Every structure is written in structure tokens, then in C-alpha cells.
Amino acid sequence: MTALELAVQDAAGIRVAAELGVDRIELCSALSLGGLTPSAGLIAAAADSGIPTHVLVRPRAGDFEYDDAERAVIVDDVRRACLHGATGVVVGGLRDGRVDEALMSRIVAAADGAPVTFHRAFDNLSDLDAGLDRLTALGVTRVLTSGGAARAEEALPVLARLVSRADHDIEIMAGSGVRSDNVERIAATGVDAVHASAKRTVTGRPGVALGSAATDGGGYETVDADEARRLLGILRSTEEAR
């Protein structure tokens, strides 16, 4: 079965995920920045939903080459996320274009048996195959990847190759640009899961813009329940047809 992981960044998204019964939540904040570590309260709310909740741990926007202070924050946030009810964590770190093995070893230890997903920092590796091998050896549970392309649908042969190389020792989850009009083709590569945000924009009340990335419209993004339902329905019907 191809699982559906829904990227969620607010209480409304948690509610949609629970109502639809998606397989897993990736919980974060600031999804428009690629996702940042969510608050303890949001983690607890997601955990209470009954949907397996994997918490994104990312201390800042930008690249994935972290200094010692940032690494310490990441490891501490992994521990705290698990204490607040996270089922698993989603993390990533690079060093000179390769997996930051020392950081990932600390993260796997801090997760204390909880599943660890290496996020799309993977797509910035200079050698995806070698990176997959290293993450498998480090005890990472799964990799979230677009196959090194901007969107997963642009790298279907690469995704299929990674699935074959993983050989069930580590899960491959396809993400980036996953929508109801392409999810069937992406799932056909044999990936264990697909990751989608299924976003829609809510019109807010105009006011003073806060932050350099803000607009003055007061709008924000949240989960589109209809799109998430379509994604889940396609994946389920595909499995039933097999």
C-alpha cells in the first residue's frame, strides 16, 4: 500500500487529517519556507488527534549545513518532540554536500526508537545513491525525496531506482508537487509513501504586514480538505485495483 503523509501546519489541518484518516501527518510550521519546527502545543494537539504524527525538526530556513549550536538545538528538539507525543521525527543535515553522519547518529539516538525520516535535504546531496546507503546504515527509517528534481513527477525513473536500491531496508517517500492529477503516476514507481501538502489559501483580513516575507492581504495557507480527500481516494482505489 502506498501511504499518504499529509503536511500540516495548523489546527485546521490536524482536524482534516483526522477526519479523512490519512496514514500520517508531517507536522511543521511555516510551510511556505519549506517548514520549520512547530510549537509544543501544536505537537500535543496533533498527537491527541490519533493520527501518527511525525514532527519536522528544522531550526531555521535556508540551507541544511548547520553549526554546532544549531545541531545541539536540533537534537534537543527531537527529544522534546517525542516527549510531547510525536510518533516520529523528520530531520536532515548536510556537511560539504554529504549526509552529516555525526548529526544523524545523534538524532537516531535521541529519537530512542521512534522512526526518523531524512527530509528533502536528501535532494541536495551530490550522490543520491551513496546518501541512501549511508542513511540506511545509520538506522534512518525513510527518506523524503523528489528524486533530485524540483518536483517528484519530473524524476520518476530516479524514484524507481531509489526504491530498487533501498530493497525494503529503508522506505522511499516521494514529495514535492504531489497532487491528485499526478499521484497515481508517482505511486506507480513503487514508493512506500507520498507526501503532499494539498494547500489552499485562505483570504484573511488586511492589516499591517509583519515580517519581510509577509503580504498585506492577511491571507494564509492551510490544508484543502477536498484535494486531500482526492489524493487519499486515488491511492486507496489504486491499491484495491491491484
Rank of each mutant, 00 (worst) to 15 (best):
V116R: 07
T37Y: 09
R142L: 00
L159S: 10
V75I: 13
V108N: 01
Q9A: 14
R151Y: 02
E184G: 11
T2G: 10
V140I: 15
L83R: 15
T189G: 15
V163N: 13
I25M: 15
I25Y: 05
Y66N: 05
T117Y: 03
E184N: 07
L4N: 08
V108R: 05
E184T: 13
V223E: 02
D129V: 13
F64E: 05
H84L: 11
P38K: 08
A149Q: 02
A150C: 03
A45T: 12
R120S: 01
R95F: 08
S29E: 13
A209S: 14
D48Y: 12
V202R: 12
A152L: 02
I234Q: 00
L27C: 12
D129H: 15
G13E: 05
G88Y: 03
V158M: 15
L36Y: 05
A150G: 01
G93Q: 03
G175R: 05
F122V: 00
V75D: 07
G131E: 09
I43R: 12
V22A: 00
S32H: 10
L232S: 06
L56N: 09
G88F: 02
T238R: 14
I43K: 10
V89G: 06
V90S: 03
D23N: 08
T189R: 14
G13W: 04
R242Q: 14
A166C: 11
V108K: 04
A45R: 15
T136M: 11
V202F: 05
A228M: 11
V116K: 09
G211N: 14
I43P: 11
E19H: 01
E240T: 12
T136I: 07
V223H: 01
N124S: 07
P115G: 04
D129I: 11
V75W: 02
V90T: 03
A46K: 13
A241R: 15
L94S: 02
L128P: 08
S39V: 08
D112E: 09
F64H: 03
A198P: 09
L156H: 10
V208E: 10
R60L: 00
L36Q: 04
V140R: 10
G175V: 06
L232N: 01
V202N: 04
R200F: 00
Y66D: 03
L135S: 12
S176D: 04
V194Y: 08
G233H: 00
V178D: 12
D123A: 01
G175N: 09
A40I: 12
A137C: 09
R242G: 14
G177T: 10
R205I: 10
K199V: 11
A111Q: 04
M104G: 01
R242L: 13
R80I: 09
G97R: 01
I51N: 06
T117A: 02
A86C: 05
G175E: 07
L144F: 06
R98E: 15
I25N: 09
A214Q: 08
H84G: 00
E184I: 08
L4A: 08
D96Y: 04
V89M: 06
G148S: 10
R134I: 12
E171N: 07
I74Y: 00
V191D: 14
A17T: 05
P115S: 05
V89S: 03
R80F: 03
G131M: 07
I14T: 03
R165L: 15
T201Q: 13
V90F: 03
T222G: 11
G233R: 04
M104V: 15
T189H: 14
